[in-house]
Design a binder for these strands. Structure first.
Lengths: 201, 201
DNA sequence: GAAGTATATTGCACTCGGTGCAAAATTCAA
DNA sequence: TTGAATTTTGCACCGAGTGCAATATACTTC
């Protein structure tokens, strides 16, 4: 057992290099004007190898989502069973967004702003996330993940994460702490929805 | 002026044929296992021409969205200015979903269920729709479309449309009228959110 | 250290979606 | 009928993504 994890280590290293070079090129010349071949070459690796690390070009940018998805789902699962939905959402989103590098977040947000393909893929991820959240919520409540209420709840959590996250990044310059920001988002949402719709029309 | 709009008429006809054949092939063999060449051939037109009618393969299926997007946005714009958000959402979603063919909706829902690429593109459309909704809401309220509250409101409307629509299609067999269904969705949402989150944690 | 096994990397050929361009066919207005 | 506007088409091209088989590299065993 001279070196147990040299393979794994090298793999990790290559992955990082691909991400670094990818992000750099994207930032410099835009997402669309950067080809996979270019990224692979910059990372000193073959085009074919690139696809062994990332399933798509978009994943170079969006793979970070997997990290905070995990954090979010964990927070939902470990929340006290009697907590109200918005409370759970608040904690979960804070947990997810907390582990986020400011610079990287800003770049990501900017790339998403001017790259339709990236936005589409991004939303595709949110769609899958929403399903996972529905699953986690269903575990908590004992209901089915396909239950209407469960789906609506999942929709809310996802929406808070998405909109809150994006707006928070934009406000990052002001140095607002995440906790406070998310709390305000949730408060705003609660107020918006407590005004009942017209019942008779 | 023998024929004023024969061009336009023929164009419309070709478009319809492409959609019909596309939907048929998708239903028969699945979205992924149907190529653009196949659709074009079935419609008796060249592959290149296909792309003069649809920007992408997905659009063959999703172009209907444009119709009910218009209906939705119109409903938002013409809503009384003092109406509460959930009321506006309710009316708008009813208006949008009302003009929907049941069979086609079911096929679409099924295709979306087992085609990731389609789901992704679908969500991409919702993303754009959410922005449009934010714009319409901003017109009403005088706020900016980038305002946090406006964005959250737009998120809610989109979510109601998306989840409500999808669930409604699943329940179509039971013959529940749209109005009632959407109203229940909104009521459920309102109840969910009126329970305030824990303020001190 | 050498031999053998597992895994990573690579090149290659291929499919498919999508686009630019210019020529040919069609529709429309004079 | 002539000529302009527009549609259709073919063709060549790019880039993303995949399957496969060969080669190189890391790890294990003796």
């Amino acid at each position: 057992m001279t070196q147990q994890g040299r393979r794994e280590q090298k793999r990790e290293e290559t992955r990082r290099r691909l991400m670094r070079e990818g992000q750099r090129l994207f930032a410099e010349q835009g997402f669309d004007r950067t080809s996979v071949d270019e990224i692979a070459a910059a990372a000193g690796v073959s085009r074919r190898t690139f696809f062994h690390y990332f399933g798509s070009k978009e994943d170079v940018v969006l793979s970070r989502h997997d990290d905070f998805e995990r954090a979010l789902l964990d927070a939902i699962r470990t929340a006290p069973p009697e907590a109200p939905l918005l409370g759970v959402a608040e904690q979960a989103v804070i947990a997810a967004l907390g582990s986020f590098d400011a610079d990287e977040a800003r770049l990501l947000e900017q790339l998403k702003r001017d790259t339709p393909a990236l936005r589409a893929r991004d939303h595709g991820k949110y769609e899958r996330l929403e399903r996972s959240i529905a699953g986690a919520l269903a575990e908590r409540s004992g209901a089915s993940p396909d239950d209407l209420r469960t789906r609506l709840d999942a929709m809310l959590v996802t929406g808070i994460l998405r909109v809150g996250g994006s707006e928070w990044v934009r406000a990052l310059a002001a140095g607002v702490p995440i906790e406070e920001y998310v709390r305000q988002v949730v408060r705003l949402l609660g107020r918006e929805l407590s005004s009942a719709p017209a019942e008779g029309s």
